[in-house]
Amino acid sequence: MSIVVTGASGRLGRLTVEALLRRGVPASDVVATGRDVARIKDLADLGVVVRRADFADPDGLAAAFEGADKLLLISTTTVDERVANHRRAIDAAVAAGVSLVAYTSMSHADTATTILAATHRATEEYLRERPVPSVLLRNSWYLENYTDQLPLVLRGGAVVGAAGRGRISAAARADYAEAAAVVLTTEGHAGQVYELGGDEAFTLAGLAEAISAATGKRITCTDLPAAEFARVLTGAGLPAGLADVLADADLGMSRDELFTASGDLRRLIGRPATPLADAIADALR
């Protein structure tokens, strides 16, 4: 009766595997999958079952999911390939006879208007059409999307974006991973839709204030039109397509599409979500 975690070579997947082990799941009952199994060899050293899974390879997915009881489908990163990849993974899960598919979606995927939300909505719709119980983990933004950029912010003295006064319910990856582990190891989640996010939402201006407070350096907030923000991102070295997607995501934030007051994350993990100030302090250490 194994639990399969896709994308275990990524940060969210790895954290979920670690959370499952902390919750007492035997390592031999956890299957960590990824395209590059060399990156998760250390999990195999712990006794976790490691299998290669390439979402473009249906036969490989069938082998990776063999014997699975529950599956955590972590959304893939390449936006224009995402829906097709997810459909292949869902079909493989159905063929494997899993009892539950948990999918890491995005806040308000059913109503949000961003490019990212559209891919998640299409996946959710496909999953609902399949003959398998499912649960939707609609994650808001990651705090790490901002804390990973702290060196750049401190050099430039500004938080730059296109989110206006939109509220962002970001949470730490570890919090989302813990929520996924809870769903995979307890009952009563099939058919549920969880809107997951931090307890205290913030704006980009609030983010700048929090960084200022943590560092003693004055950090401003520069709000740009989305097209101009995309140009800033490409100027920093991001591919044009990704820059457009991220700028579009900020526009969604300006419409509160990454805001939630559901409290679902806090209830699932049984504690407060990681505060922004703590995430900044940890990143500065």
Rank of each mutant, 00 (worst) to 15 (best):
I3N: 14
V4T: 15
V5A: 02
V5C: 08
G7N: 07
G7I: 14
L12Y: 02
R14E: 10
T16V: 05
E18L: 06
L21P: 10
R22A: 14
R22E: 14
G24Q: 10
P26K: 05
A27L: 08
S28E: 09
D29R: 12
D29L: 11
V30W: 02
V30A: 08
V31G: 01
A32G: 01
G34I: 02
G34V: 01
D36P: 02
D36S: 10
I40S: 00
A44N: 00
R52D: 00
A56Q: 07
D59V: 09
G60M: 03
L61Q: 03
E66H: 07
K70M: 01
L71A: 05
I74P: 03
T76Y: 00
T78K: 11
R82C: 03
R87S: 06
D91C: 10
A93S: 07
A95Q: 08
V98A: 13
Y103R: 14
D110I: 00
L116P: 04
H120F: 11
T123F: 07
E125M: 08
V135D: 13
L136H: 15
L137N: 05
W141C: 12
W141L: 11
T147S: 11
Q149M: 14
L152E: 06
V153A: 03
L154W: 06
A171Y: 08
A171C: 04
A171P: 10
R173M: 09
A174S: 13
D175L: 05
E178R: 03
A180P: 02
A181Q: 01
L184Q: 03
L184S: 05
T185D: 08
T186V: 15
H189W: 11
A190R: 12
G191N: 12
Y194L: 11
L196H: 09
L204T: 03
A205P: 02
A210S: 12
I211G: 08
S212F: 05
G216L: 07
I219Y: 15
I219Q: 10
L224Y: 15
A226T: 04
E228D: 13
A230C: 04
R231C: 04
R231Q: 09
A236Y: 07
P239G: 07
L242N: 03
A243P: 10
V245I: 13
D248I: 08
L251W: 00
S254Y: 06
E257D: 12
L258C: 05
L258S: 15
F259Q: 01
D264F: 05
R266F: 00
G270I: 07
L276H: 06
D278M: 08
D282I: 07
